[in-house]
Simulated scan of single mutants.
Amino acid sequence: MQAVFRRQIALLIVAFLLPLCTDVAYVIGLSFNAYYNYTTAMFSISGMLLSWVLFRYRFLDLIPTARDMVIENMEDALILLDTKDRIVDINPAAMRITGINQQDIGRSIGDFPQHALAHIMDELKHDEVQVRTEKMLLADGSERMYDIHLTSIKERKQFVTGTILTLHDSTDRIRLITELNYLAGHDELTGVYNRRQLFKQGTLSLKVATDHAGQPFSLCIFDIDGFKTINDTYGHDAGDHTLVSIINQIERQLKPQEILGRVGGDEFLVLMPSTSLDEAVGRAEVFKSSISSLEYALLGSGIALSASFGVSSTQQCSTSPSFNTVLAMADAALYQAKTLGRNQVATARM
Rank of each mutant, 00 (worst) to 15 (best):
G265N: 06
I221D: 00
G239Y: 09
S274E: 15
S274R: 14
D331W: 12
A209V: 02
L334R: 07
Q316K: 04
Q316M: 09
Y234S: 12
I259P: 00
L269H: 04
L204P: 02
K200H: 15
L206K: 07
M329D: 09
A238S: 13
L269S: 02
Q197C: 05
I221K: 04
M272K: 05
S245W: 03
L271I: 10
D240W: 08
K228E: 14
Q201M: 14
R195K: 12
K207G: 06
S313C: 07
M272N: 03
D240E: 09
S301V: 13
I291M: 03
S245N: 14
L277R: 09
Q257V: 10
T319K: 14
V311K: 01
I291A: 01
Q215M: 14
S205Y: 07
P321C: 04
T233Y: 04
P256E: 13
V244P: 01
V286F: 02
D225N: 07
T233G: 10
F199G: 03
G235P: 05
G302M: 08
A280W: 06
I291V: 15
S306A: 08
F309G: 00
S289T: 11
K228L: 03
N231Y: 07
N194D: 05
T203L: 08
D223Q: 10
L198Q: 01
L334Y: 07
S245H: 09
L198S: 01
L294P: 07
A304P: 03
G300P: 07
I224F: 13
I259R: 13
D278Y: 05
Q257H: 08
A307F: 03
T233W: 00
P256M: 01
L334H: 00
Q249W: 06
Q316T: 11
L277E: 14
I259L: 12
T203M: 04
S292V: 06
I291F: 09
Q315R: 13
S293P: 01
V244W: 02
L243N: 00
D240V: 04
R195Q: 12
I247W: 00
D240N: 15
L294S: 04
I303Q: 13
L334T: 03
S218Y: 04
K200A: 14
D331L: 08
V263A: 05
A280I: 06
S245C: 06
S301M: 08
Y296W: 12
F227R: 09
P321K: 04
F227M: 00
P321S: 04
P321M: 08
T229R: 14
A328K: 10
N324V: 13
T203D: 15
S276P: 01
E258T: 08
E267S: 00
D237S: 12
V311F: 01
L254V: 14
A284N: 09
